[in-house]
Design a protein around this nucleic acid. Structure first.
Lengths: 347, 347
DNA sequence: TTGAAAGCGCTAACAA
DNA sequence: TTGTTAGCGCTTTCAA
């Protein structure tokens, strides 16, 4: 004998209206908090709420969305959810969005512009209410169209050339500039930079900060670009052969967290001592850098603040459609965390 | 003067039918690949496809879903997207699901059963087509109801007591059993286990494997449970005071990747040398363990295979509703990766 | 081979 | 204060 719970026959608003002998509209209004506004008697409103709770009626969100045009879903597009930086940002954003009644639909681009285009199309088809985007180059036209359409949207981590939109990024140029100066002040002279071959604004900024600091010191930059994305083992070997060639380098900076990891692996395979033979600084902090022997100096991104600003900016334009048109562009300061890997060993 | 692109007035199926002077049904049928079946002339089908492509018509998925009852969205519920294990699994699942035409709606539980209940309700309201779940205890009733409802569903990482459902888990008991035996064979005698205080099947299995190996060797287990989830600094200090108390321990096993990280931090603060003063093994592999000095021995989970089996199982029951009822339960073997941290230093 | 029309479940304008 | 009803955009049966 099935219990009541078992045969839960997917209640409709119609059913509950009939049971309570009120109209569908009344139920809908009460459920959407418009009882007062529409001057529905407190007693009726109360009865509705009570019964709905009792039988566990849940409105079909699909129908609701079709009707209202709102899905309460935010589309999150990032480079790779397996990258700790993006995973942490995603976790924080999810948490904050959930608290405000929004859910996340997420996808990784893997820096593939064609895949990204498909993703953006899918999000549009699904009518997400807003977008949070860390995109590869090559989708400028699509994003521009999105902005024009008036959909709330926030770019983060990186900008898109020629696209005017809300954005929250980290000031990697200053971060790398200061990090480079720190190395110089420690007496290191041949400072190399390892960065991925990606024409993205945040990467260019990081390289620029590094280059500027060196030039001001009258030194010349030594930039090595590695293919990315690419097979892990290949990346390590690439770094390894770079270090083998660059026998005069006394310091190296990694432009991303994953290059830091692969770079350390390469240095370890070569048996290079840090910082005695080569000083190291990586962009982005994580457990590995903090606990490595020696601990690695990093340019730490303000992840918590980044997530907060991103979701704050999006929710603001979501809840205040009037303000669409006013563009918010934020640049957050990273923090240089000096650890043993960049300290000139006292001779 | 707005260009054609600018005033893209949200095309409807109606518009395209009218333009082509065919019926709405014809357009719909062609778009859903039922042209042949419904014997629609090739020429008409071709015209429809061509025009749709030309003007970039995209059906409203909300309306489509409301009508068909299918959303092509998979709900992914995990403990914490910022945990590298879950982040990696999520990345792999997302990639494989996308390739099959499904998108992911994801949420983290943070081991909060009440939050989890809300999450499951939200997913139901949004009519996700299937569920991939790594849940905390306390939601057995909800999941049992979900299974009864016939919705495709796969549990992973951990089972739920008393719930019969598809599942893909890793055999942590054997993994820890073998790891413990390895330590014993290296001559370590006082082996402690640090684990989170979570009554979850995978944790219990790991503890059981450890305990069994010790008992078989006539030794007694030494299990320390730490509060989780909890503030990071607190976790490190908790581990630290455990190590301070346990002066006779000559080896320690960490039941999760995060405990491994915090445990290493604690040992470092105490200045304990690994493996001379204490040998270390952690469950779950990652960059930190591989590159740590000394490299940490781990019980590595077969993440790629796990993701593959999870999505494979789900898609199978998604695409083959007939088979609902046939439960698939898989147990994958982890791999002991021996590194320096667990090797008896040659005296 | 194609067209008309009945919904999917809900919201909200309009009437009463 | 509450009820009726017209859609939101699409799929699919049934009739032509």
């Amino acid at each position: 004998m099935p219990t009541e719970l078992d045969l839960k026959k997917k209640l409709l608003i119609h059913d509950i209206a009939k049971h309570l002998e009120v109209s569908i509209a009344t139920v809908s209004l009460v459920l959407n908090g418009k009882a007062k506004e529409k001057r529905i008697s407190d007693s009726v409103a109360e009865r509705v709420l009570k019964y709905v709770e009792e039988v566990g009626y849940k409105p079909n969100q699909l129908a609701k969305s079709l009707r209202t045009g709102k899905t309460h879903v935010i589309g999150l597009v990032i480079e790779d959810i397996a990258n700790p930086f993006f995973a942490t940002v995603a976790a924080l954003i999810e948490q904050k969005a959930l608290a405000r009644g929004y859910r996340m639909l997420f996808c990784s681009t893997n820096n593939d512009s064609s895949k990204t285009r498909d993703l953006l199309t899918m999000f549009q088809e699904r009518h997400v209410d807003g977008y949070i985007l860390a995109l590869p180059n090559g989708v400028e036209a699509e994003v521009r169209a999105l902005v024009r359409s008036g959909k709330p949207l926030v770019l983060f981590d990186r900008l898109l050339p020629g696209v005017q939109a809300n954005a929250v990024v980290v000031d990697g140029a200053t971060g790398m500039y200061e990090a480079t100066q720190h190395l110089l002040s420690q007496g290191f002279k041949r400072i190399a930079l390892l960065m991925p071959r990606l024409d993205q604004t945040q990467m260019n900024a990081r390289a620029q900060g590094y280059t500027q600091a060196l030039r001001e010191a009258g030194l010349s930059p030594l930039v090595h670009e590695v293919e990315f994305p690419q097979d892990t083992e290949q990346l390590v070997q690439d770094a390894q052969s770079f270090f083998e060639d660059c026998t005069t380098c006394d310091a190296v900076m990694f432009a991303t967290n994953y290059l830091g990891v692969y770079g350390l692996e390469a240095l370890r395979r070569l048996g290079r001592r840090i910082p005695e033979e080569i000083a190291v600084i990586s962009f982005d902090d994580n457990d590995l850098f903090r606990l490595y022997s020696p601990p690695i100096t990093v340019v730490a991104q303000p992840i918590e603040a980044l997530a907060e600003e991103v979701i704050g900016t999006l929710l603001a334009s979501l809840e205040n459609p009037a303000e669409t048109g006013r563009i918010v562009q934020l640049q957050l300061a990273p923090q240089l965390v000096v650890r043993a890997s960049s300290m000139r060993p006292s001779a």
